[in-house]
Design a protein around this nucleic acid. Structure first.
Length: 266
DNA sequence: CATCTTGTTACGTT
DNA sequence: AAACGTAACAAGAT
């Protein structure tokens, strides 16, 4: 499920636990979310440490604890964070629970595509430092966009937008939303987008990211009316611009939706 | 019962 | 070497 703004929403769910000590850790060590994660070390080191801060970048989250401990979380397709009471008993899909005196911080993920990372290091873990710059930052310039698309010149633009190296946080619905607004057909070869259309695409990426953050991350509201988002899951979704029935097909390995009139196949 | 899924990664081919 | 397409991962919803 979670794309950019939903990840930010879930990150905030653990904020009640800031500046509070971890007293106990419960985890399902055999589950796939812990593939290659040192779970024994987590259980041994986290109790007694204090949750200091957290940050989301794209679909990645990082939680910093005292004693130089860092927890990385990726929600995969069905991951969620929530808070429960201190007597909480983990259910089948509650794979990681950090108990504090007054609450339990819970990571659940039925489908197990998510991932838990754990590091003990004085400064930010290396994988975090290497993440690409946020799409709403100055570093994501039209030139950076152009370079990325040239490198993947034969890839359909829809597939390119799903690459987290280039577009951290963009997922399936955001990619379709962006291309609908930029009036680009999903199968357009990334390298064939000429300069004017590329500028429009760049602006649209930023607008969709900002719009999503504004509406979804504070309280998980839907995006405003008029977004493709509201139509894309319906069987006969219609283009918000003029009501034409949306087309539907698998592009870049994902179910995709577009308007044949707004986004002609050129 | 069959088919679908808002994500990533391993693997084989070009 | 890098780019690209596809299968695989797992489980719930329809």
């Amino acid at each position: 499920m979670p794309e950019l703004a939903e990840v930010e929403y879930y990150r905030r769910q653990w904020e009640p636990g800031l500046r509070q000590k971890i007293v106990r850790v419960a985890l399902h060590r055999e589950k796939r979310v812990f593939r290659s994660t040192p779970t024994r070390t987590m259980e041994r080191r986290l109790p007694g440490s204090v949750l200091l801060r957290s940050e989301a970048r794209g679909k990645q989250m990082l939680f910093q604890f005292s004693k130089g401990l860092w927890l990385g979380l990726h929600l995969g397709m069905t991951g969620k964070l929530r808070v429960e009471g201190p007597r909480f008993e983990p259910g089948r899909h509650d794979h990681l629970v950090l108990y504090q005196k007054a609450r339990a911080l819970v990571f659940s993920d039925p489908r197990l595509f998510g991932r838990v990372l754990f590091h003990e290091t004085p400064s930010t873990p290396p994988w975090w430092a290497k993440l690409p710059p946020a799409l709403d930052s100055k570093a994501f310039s039209p030139e950076v966009l152009s370079r990325f698309l040239k490198r993947h010149r034969n890839l359909p633009i829809k597939a390119a937008l799903l690459m987290q190296d280039g577009f951290p946080g963009v997922g399936n619905w955001m990619a379709d939303e962006i291309l609908w607004r930029a009036q680009l057909h999903l199968k357009t070869a990334s390298g064939s987008i000429e300069s004017r259309a590329l500028t429009v695409l760049w602006r649209t990426i930023r607008a969709v990211c900002r719009g999503a953050m504004k509406h979804i991350s504070p309280n998980f509201d839907d995006p405003p009316r008029g977004w493709l988002f509201h139509e894309r899951w319906q069987r006969h979704g219609r283009c918000p611009s003029h009501g034409l029935t949306l087309k539907r097909a698998s592009v870049g390995g994902r179910t995709s939706v577009w308007c044949p009139l707004c986004q002609p196949n050129r």
